[in-house]
Amino acid sequence: MKAIWNNQVIAESNDTVVIENNHYFPPSSINKKFFNSSDTASHCPWKGTASYFTLEVDGKSNADAAWYYPTTSHAAKPIEGYIAFWKGVEITE
């Protein structure tokens, strides 16, 4: 699977985990040069508190377009630390 934004592959892996129709990519699969930490956080009742990344590609910014759970509840352990995308990030094979 590939995550693409602004015509750039920002993550690629054969080992994504799909939960609620979102592909969660292993941390080792992202191209870190495109990811900047964000102060944004949100809470999911069954997964825990999510943190976000802003994507920066070729001078364009996509605020909070990637999220992850640094620490998950027991039920969501398979995605702990894994990164998912939204806000126009294309997920493709």
Rank of each mutant, 00 (worst) to 15 (best):
K2S: 01
K2A: 01
K2T: 06
A3W: 08
A3S: 08
I4H: 08
W5Y: 14
N6T: 04
N6S: 04
N6A: 03
N7S: 03
N7C: 00
N7F: 05
Q8W: 00
V9C: 02
V9N: 01
V9T: 14
I10N: 03
I10L: 06
A11G: 05
A11K: 01
E12S: 09
S13I: 04
N14R: 07
N14L: 01
N14G: 01
D15M: 02
T16G: 00
T16V: 14
V17K: 10
V17W: 14
V17I: 15
V18N: 09
I19Q: 13
I19P: 02
I19M: 12
I19D: 10
I19H: 12
E20F: 04
E20S: 08
E20T: 11
E20C: 03
N21I: 02
N21E: 15
N22S: 10
N22I: 07
N22K: 09
H23R: 09
H23C: 01
Y24G: 03
P26R: 03
P26L: 02
S28H: 14
S29E: 01
I30P: 04
I30E: 04
N31C: 04
N31R: 11
N31E: 12
K32W: 12
K33F: 13
K33A: 10
K33N: 09
F34P: 05
F34K: 07
N36W: 07
S37R: 09
S37V: 11
D39W: 02
T40H: 14
A41P: 00
S42Q: 02
H43M: 12
H43A: 13
P45L: 11
W46H: 10
K47G: 06
T49K: 11
T49E: 15
A50M: 10
A50S: 10
S51E: 15
S51A: 14
S51Q: 13
Y52C: 00
Y52E: 00
T54S: 14
T54H: 12
T54I: 13
E56G: 01
E56P: 00
V57L: 07
V57H: 09
D58F: 05
G59A: 09
K60W: 11
K60G: 03
K60F: 14
S61G: 04
S61I: 15
N62C: 12
D64Y: 04
A66Y: 05
A66R: 02
Y68K: 00
Y68R: 00
Y68M: 02
P70W: 07
P70V: 10
T71W: 06
T71S: 10
T71P: 06
T72K: 03
T72W: 13
T72Q: 02
H74C: 00
A75L: 06
K77I: 11
K77V: 10
I79H: 08
I79T: 11
I79R: 06
I79M: 05
I79S: 08
I79G: 01
E80F: 10
G81P: 02
G81T: 07
G81A: 03
Y82V: 06
I83S: 08
I83V: 15
A84P: 01
A84S: 12
F85R: 03
W86L: 06
W86I: 13
W86A: 07
K87G: 02
G88V: 08
V89N: 03
V89H: 08
V89L: 12
E90Q: 14
E90Y: 05
E90D: 11
I91D: 04
I91V: 15
T92Y: 11
T92V: 15
E93P: 05
E93D: 15
